[in-house]
Amino acid sequence: MAVPILKQGQYLIATIQSALSDVDLTHLQDALVGQVGKLRSRGVIVDVTALDVMDSYASRTLRDLAHMIRLRGAETVIVGIQPEVAFSMVQLGLTLEGVSTALDLEEALLHLGQKTKRPQQRDKPS
């Protein structure tokens, strides 16, 4: 099951719509890390609201993805982790360290807006 990736201005938004196999997750990682450079994106949002399980493989893939994207010069935000999923993750010791999280898409956009603010030298002085 491929995950659709949407380009929204400077950002890429990937919305996971159903349970993903390990192969699907790896494809998502490759696709996002590739496109972020191609489209010169400043931020990536991965929406995991639909995931009812986040096991060690999924957590690790998302964490690696975020770190790789940072190396490519962009920020990643994971949004929509369900309460039960978060509870299970911390009990397994999976805390997505060093990765930003947000409650929903709106929050994620706000967060990226703050994080990716560039010195606006090309803008007209206000």
Partner: peptide, 9 residues
């Protein structure tokens, strides 16, 4: 529901 998530994980 929280137990279901643990079991599935």
């Amino acid at each position: 529901s929280s137990q279901l998530t643990l079991i599935a994980t």
